[in-house]
Design a protein around this nucleic acid. Structure first.
Lengths: 332, 332
DNA sequence: GCCTGGCTTCGAAGCGCTTCGATACGTCAG
DNA sequence: CTGACGTATCGAAGCGCTTCGAAGCCAGGC
């Protein structure tokens, strides 16, 4: 193994000088710096992560705490994971995976062993058992999602209430007077997941405000359930002409069911999705949508966590503003 | 921070004794052991991961090298990730995520810095740029998938050739004489991904062997493409009565398109999927399938890697035997 | 000519753990 | 009773790095 001492000898300097070149924590003359960097490359030196973490008390690793619950949409989750991993690398950090079934003990373990400098927690629920643990951990953390009591925490999420509201506004502006929210699977509401709840609240509030009639229904993700749900919805509420779909997995089926029922999109029924842009673009017809910006959220969460690690003050609550893109599934 | 010295003092023993209790590398009297364990709990001691890794030259972390390529099915990928993470925990290891866009340099970095003890590489292609890097890394690795040249490597995968073959056998046994393979997106074949290639080879070979006619077509994942593909397939090859689908994302659409074309499953067309069991079960009708055992593969891969870390001899190539489960989409 | 201050660089301490050899104490065979 | 051996524990060295204080050197001001 190549050590810092080897590099130092090769470059004709003290080990500490090499360290300062690598960490940039003291100024080093450009001549020495260049010589050291050449030696690093020549020897293929990689600092020993354990030694570094022991000496500096920083591991340069973030924990990504993954939930794994019913009704979650894997492609979106994966987008988050990848976005977080890449953002972390840009800040010279790696990502350690902590899965749900390790529970609170898992958080304590990775934080207590100094294996990670901070934690990123995904898919937070209103009453999440991990939240109190995070509070008394001595490491900073950032939540993607909002628990009921966010005091003392840093949270970031899409403004789902505003997203739901924007969808209604868009439909109302187009003249629709009866709209429906096709929501997440029932299980998601039952466990009181913040984002689903907030979308619904924003949707309903906007309908009230705009004076349009509205209804909401949870929806499972398999095609047959979607068929039954949508068929029933249109039978019970024949005046519905606008659908807001907040359920990525059910989306293709919703479109397909409307087609098979002979309801033309957008002529008979307008559809707005709350989902990642690429998915909305790929469907036929391309759907007007409010983007779930997984990439952006992941980056933002990492940036917040890095700021906390630097002891830079950070806003406790960040709501990213939703962006609605008009496509072929709604028309003037 | 609580250190091993604190625990030792609390238990009235030497630090080394605490270490031996924790690692089990020397025998300790049960009385002392109990006392130390009590102190560990009382103080809430977690060994410092960096210090441990520095002293023992083992980080107790595995790298999971994730690809992120076009045409990959995220839910299956996520199943792998979770299975690997959980299996690793059972062996007292954690999982560090290395994403594709870090490339070969990423592998060198995590291995060179002693951040990980071994590497798990997913979705290996026939001619994978990462393979030569793995060979000259000084850490053991296990590939999920097979490259063209697997010399000196440890690989594990489902026996996809046999899986393709079993599907044909099953259909032939039921009397079908013309079968089609509905495969992965074109991009997957273009980059010469092993599993897709092997399924196809097994499928075609079995068709020859059994004397049934066969055809194959790559298929994109969006509903419209599937509709065009399946409609075209049945027009060009009207005698086809058996479909083998090796494309998880397209699967719901395939079933739906058959329905909309008025082809009853299994009466007009028999369908076998190569996909995770839960997905096959959830469709209507439930599909006969050869399971892609993500969970089992993940566990097996971790077990192999742990064996290599222990310097236990391991088989270079492991092919898990496919398991075909009959469900309602094929009948006698 | 001497002191001050800034810029570089050095040397050594020490982070918390594992591990190796040594020690202490029985136990048992001869 | 003694020597050999096995078991349980201790003490110290050292893993590779960061970091702090100090030292060396040069320039500039008096």
């Amino acid at each position: 193994m190549v050590t810092i001492a080897d590099v130092a000898k090769h470059a004709g300097v003290a080990p500490s000088t090499v360290s300062y070149v690598l960490t940039g924590r003291r100024s080093i003359s450009s001549a020495t710096k260049a010589r050291v960097e050449a030696s690093v490359r020549a020897l293929g030196y990689h600092p020993h992560a354990g030694a570094r973490s022991l000496a500096s008390n920083r591991a340069n690793v973030l924990a990504l705490v993954l939930p794994m619950r019913e009704g979650m949409h894997m492609p979106v989750l994966m987008q988050f994971v990848v976005a977080v991993a890449n953002a972390a690398r840009r800040h010279d950090h790696d990502v350690l995976l902590v899965t749900a079934d390790q529970g609170a003990a898992g958080l304590r373990r990775v934080a207590g062993s100094a294996q990670v400098d901070g934690l990123l927690v995904m898919d937070v629920e209103m009453h999440d058992e991990r939240v109190p643990v995070l509070r008394d951990l001595d490491r900073p953390s950032v939540l993607i999602g909002f628990p009921a009591d966010a005091a003392g925490l840093t949270c970031v999420d899409l403004d789902f209430a505003e997203a739901g509201s924007r969808c209604v506004d868009h439909l109302a502006d187009l003249g629709h007077t009866y709209v429906a929210l096709v929501g997440a699977p029932r299980a998601v509401y039952q466990r009181d997941t913040g984002f689903a709840h907030r979308t619904m609240a924003g949707f309903s509030a906007a309908a009230m405000r705009r004076g349009v009639s509205s209804t909401t229904l949870p929806t499972e993700t398999d095609h047959e359930s979607v068929r039954v749900a949508i068929t029933g919805l249109l039978e019970r509420h024949p005046a519905v002409t606008g659908l807001v779909v907040h359920n990525e997995a059910a989306l293709p089926s919703v479109v397909e069911v409307l087609r098979s029922l002979g309801r033309k999109v957008p002529d008979d029924v307008a559809v707005i999705a709350i989902c990642p842009d690429d998915q909305a673009e790929r469907l036929m017809p391309p759907l007007t949508s409010v983007a779930v910006p997984a990439e952006q959220l992941g980056h933002h969460a990492v940036a917040l966590l890095m700021a906390k690690l630097d002891r830079t003050p950070t806003p406790p609550l960040t709501l990213l503003p939703p962006r609605l893109t008009e496509r072929a599934s709604t028309t003037r």
